[in-house]
Design a protein around this nucleic acid. Structure first.
Length: 462
DNA sequence: CTATAGCCTAC
RNA sequence: CUUGUAGGCUAUAG
């Protein structure tokens, strides 16, 4: 409710404005380096430094996210900051700043359940981002080399490759730890204790804690948040990593081989028996020491060829170890392409193809790590049939069909015969004649990406 | 290197 | 009254 008290202040500070363009002046105060007691105590100066705030603003703006509880959009952030920048900074510095509660939004997950988001106001996202940029440089370098989620220059593919390496080294069993709604159950005090070990500036610590307990608005009702970090704030991912870094450090201390991606932790061991022992002791560690809720039904030890991690299972052939993806993910792609190629959809063919390419390129870029040449070829053919079907439907009238077929060098009598056919769209789409006239080559010329080529290109780099 | 747009993954 | 954050990839413009 209490907001960076707006109003009243006039707008003569155009030279002080937070503005992306224009020359970038270097932040004049405590400028890196001094990691003595001075540096750590003045962390807040770095947070509110000009350069840092500019960068934070750009990031929030670039994300183009929606408004929080106060209704302020990212486009309104710059005018707001121009008017209230000094006041805002002062409130942050003297500790009187109060974040607004987050907005509760529920989005569906692929498995049908809901994900509860907590969306901070645009202004709060801006401040959280500014804090993030500063504390990230402190925490990230000391995070485990086996932690991959939410970290720069580390991708899901890197995590998968690490898992594969363990498997190839003979760790043929995996302990898959499943935490029940991890982000919602993090204990504030225990989390802040981890943060305090590295951040000594009390004002920054209090600010982070205020964000943690800023409350959540559900149906106009404000509820307090005594535990959990809200999913939706810029700080949430790093806070999640800071807390589970304790797990990483414990696993390292015990000499385990593991990979963690956000709250998804896999420990690789050489026997089922070892796996069961590790599962018991780490479960105890998570519950007793970290006060997290372990999902006992889903936590299990098994073969990496059976348990999926980041969408994949491992599998072995004579050639070596590879990745295999779940059938459901293939079905998901097919559903998506199906709706993009519905006969009744709008847009011209080039637009449709552009949208298809966006999906297929993105999909193959991620899933191309797995070997699925035959599947890709199948999808390729199916997709081209779907597109031929749309084109045929759009020709619609006998005359257009005839003229179009003629233009594609179909002999006159044949063209006339097919233009008058009463077969269904799908039958026609599969037909020899359409395949001959609207060739793969023509579709490629219109811009349709050849998935087989795409796949071979992507896959060859693994 | 900066920016825009889209897709994918994870939460 | 409806979608947040982090990372990755691709395309485009400087």
């Amino acid at each position: 409710m209490r907001q960076p008290q707006t109003t009243s202040k006039d707008d003569y500070l155009s030279k002080n404005r937070v503005e992306p363009e224009g020359t970038i002046e270097v932040c004049s105060m405590t400028h890196g380096e001094t990691e003595g007691r001075d540096g750590v105590q003045n962390l807040l100066n770095k947070v509110t430094g000009r350069q840092n705030l500019n960068q934070a603003y750009k990031k929030v703006k670039a994300n183009r996210g929606s408004a929080g509880i106060d209704g302020m959009t990212v486009d309104e952030l710059l005018p707001f900051l121009m008017r209230n920048r000094d006041k805002l900074i002062q409130q942050i510095r003297d500790g009187s700043y109060e974040p607004q509660p987050v907005k509760r939004v529920e989005i569906p997950k692929p498995d049908g359940s809901k994900r509860k988001l907590g969306i901070p106001s645009v202004c709060d996202r801006f401040i959280q981002q500014a804090i993030l940029q500063v504390i990230e440089r402190i925490f990230d370098p000391t995070f485990s080399d086996n932690s991959f989620g939410f970290r720069s220059k580390r991708s899901a593919h890197d995590a998968l490759k690490r898992a594969k390496t363990y498997y190839e080294e003979g760790y043929r069993y995996v302990v898959d730890l499943d935490l029940k709604s991890y982000f919602d159950t993090v204990n504030h005090d225990k989390l802040m204790y981890c943060v305090e070990k590295r951040i000594k500036d009390k004002r920054v610590l209090r600010l982070i804690r205020k964000f943690l307990r800023s409350g959540v608005v559900n149906h106009g009702k404000v509820n307090p948040t005594e535990e959990g970090v809200p999913q939706g704030g810029p700080l949430s991912p790093i806070l999640g990593n800071i807390y589970l870094d304790q797990l990483d450090k414990e696993l390292e201390r015990r000499g385990h081989q593991f990979v963690r991606y956000a709250d998804d932790s896999n420990i690789y061991v050489k026997s089922r028996k070892a796996g069961e022992r590790v599962m018991r002791s780490i479960t105890t560690f998570l519950e007793k020491k970290l006060k997290l809720t372990v999902n006992h039904e889903k936590t299990q030890v098994g073969s990496p060829t059976k348990l999926k991690f980041l969408g994949f299972c491992l599998y072995t052939t004579k050639q070596g170890t590879g990745f295999r993806l779940h059938v459901k993910l293939k079905k998901r792609l097919e559903r998506k392409l199906k709706q993009l190629t519905k006969r009744s959809r709008s847009g011209n063919i080039r637009e449709i193809i552009k949208e298809i390419n966006e999906v297929t390129i993105g999909w193959i870029n991620y899933y191309g790590i797995s070997y699925m040449k035959n599947y890709i070829r199948h999808i390729d053919q199916w997709l081209r049939r779907r597109i031929r079907q749309i084109i045929w439907k759009r020709w619609k009238k006998v005359k257009t069909r005839y003229k179009s077929l003629m233009k594609l060098n179909v002999p006159k009598p044949k063209a006339w015969e097919w233009a008058n056919t009463r077969k269904g769209y799908w039958r026609i789409a599969c037909s020899h004649i359409l395949h001959r006239s609207i060739t793969n080559k023509i579709l490629e010329q219109v811009g349709l990406k050849n998935l087989t080529h795409l796949f071979e290109h992507v896959h060859s780099s693994y």
